[in-house]
């Protein structure tokens, strides 16, 4: 299976970028400042957690890092190259993939086609795309749902398809937006194994937005905390857990 996952077609190489960086990102929506001066660096081989209360600007920041939102000021860099203002499809072609909070599957297409179409978008042949898609689905544990229409999948399976779709052709970085929302504890455990395996299996850095603290603390190598659009802390999981500011702004509310 590992062979298929890394079986890139001629002309398509896994992107080499070693880090995905936000430098002094500011996003303003008509006077409302959603993000003010946030910098972070997500490294390959790492799971980088991004946490904070609702409205902290986590998704907006992910939108900036994937081309869906142009920052008002600041830079986005991929392995040193300035990628600010790139379109989402250009980000994906250069190895920055993401999932969405709402799933956003192609509802009228089959599960296999959902994954396959990303491989096609990245330039694979039909046959190679199909083989690759089946391998990705097997990897997230949905090999038997390939022919199911995506719109009829249960919520938790939707998330896995989203992850399979994002991992097509081994991107350099994947940004997961609340993949565990609404999952039971057992499902969270499965998900954690999948997420933790991504850096090793694909040599792909992960940026993980999540509210579930056991998931965050369980898989992250580093954690960045936002509140009200500002960075309030960054560090190792143990440091974040002990940080007084983080506890009062965010963790404290969890009791």
């Amino acid at each position: 299976m590992t062979d298929v996952l890394h079986d890139l077609p001629p002309g398509v190489e896994q992107p080499q970028a070693a880090e995905l960086t936000a430098e002094g990102i500011v996003v303003r929506f008509q006077g409302l400042t959603a993000i003010s001066d946030v910098s972070l660096e997500c490294k390959r081989h790492q799971v980088f957690g991004l946490i904070g209360p609702n409205g902290a600007g986590k998704t907006t920041l992910v939108n900036c890092l994937t081309g869906f939102q142009r920052p008002t000021s600041g830079r986005v860099r991929l392995g040193g190259e300035d990628t600010t203002g790139w379109t989402p499809d250009r980000f994906r072609k250069n190895g920055v993939a993401r999932t969405f909070q709402a799933g956003r599957l192609f509802r009228d297409m089959t599960v296999a086609e959902n994954v396959e179409v990303t491989a096609l978008g990245l330039g694979m042949s039909r046959r190679a795309a199909h083989r690759h898609a089946m391998a990705m689905l097997a990897w997230v544990g949905l090999g038997d749902r390939a022919d199911t229409i995506a719109g009829t999948l249960p919520y938790t399976d939707e998330r896995r398809v989203g992850i399979a779709r994002a991992m097509v052709l081994s991107p350099a970085f994947v940004l997961l937006d609340e993949p565990a929302a609404g999952m039971s504890d057992a499902e969270c455990d499965d998900l954690m194994h999948i997420i933790a395996a991504i850096p090793k299996e694909f040599t792909c850095g992960v940026l993980l937005i999540e509210h579930n603290m056991s998931v965050i603390m369980g898989v992250c190598d580093r954690i960045h905390v936002l509140d009200g659009g500002r960075t309030i802390a960054e560090g190792l999981p143990a440091e974040i857990r002990a940080d007084a500011v983080v506890i009062s702004a965010y963790l404290g509310m969890e009791g």
Partner: peptide, 24 residues
Amino acid sequence: SRWGIMLRASRDDEVAAKSSAIGV
């Protein structure tokens, strides 16, 4: 064709299609 499949993906969800490297 590959164009047809990519176009139907953009019909179902334009935002997700863009993040699937599809030039909508």
